[in-house]
Design a protein around this nucleic acid. Structure first.
Length: 467
DNA sequence: AGCACCTCGAAGACAGTAGT
DNA sequence: ACTACTGTCTTCGAGGTGCT
């Protein structure tokens, strides 16, 4: 408090003399020379928290004891302002001090050291400004550096208080009204109403409400365009995010955790797939389908029409080998591989053998480049997946396994195929489901001796509609 | 799943504020 | 005094949450 009171002991005359003319004052407080600045650089407050803290030197704590006494002084009528907190109750960080603020803090300390009374805020401010403006860049450097550090501190604290929006996340599209306002501001440039931005916004809102649908239409159309662009960008963003995290989007993740965990080791794939050929699996299948549509929507160029593409489409897709085509699935596979040792402890020798076999199968089919999930054949007639999955309940398990393991790139493909007996059953079921058409030999992605036969041709002619 | 409700962010430029 | 940051104000829609 004593410190505070000194603020009120005013002696402008003494001040100006002391600051500018006396010999001793000149050293510390007169012209701010690089040497003087340098000399006192150690006293330059390192953070706002230390500001005015007197001997408080190194404290980095968030309590601003020093400040408080000062605040009490000129903020005596500044009642206890409720500290601002975010919705999680995290207090808002103190703002970063600027180089100039650091300078004033340092300057005040120097005044105190010199034993001269500190002028009241108005005079002090003028004095500081005069000094500050007379300083060159070099003189200011220590203060600037301190400010930069504090700015970093502020950024860090702010990131906790109010996490920055993802810079890569596409900005939301402007609404029709926003687009209108852009024009409106141009129109009103130079003739803004009294009340500034707020008044202009009100005026804009009023104008907008009075506009006819016809007048609004261009903005609505533009809004729709922007929305489309936004959706495309968001799709891209989500895909990239999923790729980076190796997992699904937050929404998908939520769906996954609510249901079965897609791609988690030891889920239903090995034994459960046949057993869980139920609602969950169908959901899972749809989800995979959606992912597939979203994740690797084939471009016209790469899609079905070319013979090569057709080849890839066929049972090929097939294949565990196609899995690496999708980043997230690839990662899922990697995860599985990493976790295999644990799983293997519980696997029988034959299961392990099958797993190895599958792995080699997978390797043999790695000729499909990344991000190139084979395209679907063109749609002519329709066959819904739900038909396949739900109308043949007795066969569903097999069909599902086949589907997930191959066409749809289910991340558990390896497990599905690794489950020797289950794989055989899958093929058998699949063949039954497509009875009459199964000719030729089983494709390479099916375990040797899995039984049954398979023909890409017999598989393909029935086109799918993904409903 | 679908609905209602709520929050936030989109643009603009300047006034106000924090900090001594 | 200076600097950097926030709030202002509008409408609309996206997206999240909670409930049925």
């Amino acid at each position: 408090m004593a410190d505070s009171r000194t603020f009120f002991i005013i002696s402008v005359q003494v001040m100006s003399c002391g600051l500018t003319n006396t010999a001793t004052g000149q050293h510390h407080l007169g012209q701010v020379t690089p040497s003087a600045t340098h000399m006192s650089y150690t006293n330059v407050p390192t953070t706002t928290s230390n500001a005015g803290g007197g001997g408080g030197g190194g404290g980095t704590g968030g309590h601003h004891g020093g400040n408080q006494s000062i605040t009490t002084h000129h903020g005596s009528n500044k009642k206890h302002k409720k500290p601002k907190v975010n919705k999680d109750g995290i207090p808002a960080p103190k703002r970063a001090t600027t180089a100039y603020i650091n300078f004033t803090q340092w300057y005040r300390e120097e005044l105190k050291k010199s034993g001269r009374p500190i002028p009241k805020i108005g005079e002090f401010g003028k004095e500081c400004a005069g000094k500050w403006n007379s300083m060159n860049e070099e003189d200011k450097t220590p203060f600037i550096n301190t400010a930069m550090k504090d700015r970093e501190r502020y950024k860090k604290e702010m990131a906790v208080y109010k996490p920055a929006r993802d810079a890569n996340k596409p900005k939301r599209p402007g609404t029709a009204f926003m687009l209108f306002m852009a024009d409106f501001r141009k129109e009103m440039a130079g003739k803004e109403p009294e009340g500034g931005v707020a008044a202009l916004a009100k005026l804009g809102g009023e104008r907008w409400r009075n506009m006819s649908e016809e007048e609004k239409r261009p903005y609505v159309e533009k809004q729709n365009e922007e929305k489309l662009r936004y959706e495309v960008n968001m799709e891209d963003y989500r895909r990239k995010s999923a790729g980076m995290t190796g997992g699904p989007s937050p929404k998908q993740a939520r769906l996954s955790t609510e249901g079965s965990e897609v791609g988690s080791p030891g889920d239903s794939a090995d034994s459960g797939c046949a057993n869980n050929a139920d609602h969950n699996q169908e959901q899972d299948g749809h989800q995979v389908l959606r992912n597939r549509q979203n994740v690797s929507t084939p471009s016209p160029a790469t899609s079905s029409s070319s013979p090569q593409a057709q080849q890839n489409v066929s049972p090929g897709p097939l294949t565990a080998g196609s899995l690496p085509g999708q980043p997230s699935h690839q990662q899922a596979n990697q995860t599985q591989q990493q976790q295999q040792p644990q799983q293997q402890q519980q696997q029988t020798a034959s299961q392990q053998q099958n797993a190895q076999q599958t792995q080699s199968i997978s390797n043999n089919n790695n000729n499909i480049p990344n991000n190139s999930m084979p395209s679907l054949p063109p749609l002519s007639t329709t066959m819904s997946l739900s038909h396949a999955l739900s109308n043949h309940t007795s066969l569903m398990a097999g069909y599902s396994q086949h589907s997930f393991a191959s066409n749809f790139g289910h991340p558990n493909a390896a497990n599905v195929l690794a489950a020797g007996a289950a794989a055989a059953a899958a093929v058998a079921n699949y063949n039954q489901a497509h009875s009459g058409n199964m000719t030729g030999s089983a494709p390479s992605y099916l375990p040797t001796g899995a039984g049954g036969s398979y023909s890409a041709q017999s598989h393909l002619p029935g086109h799918y509609s993904w409903n």
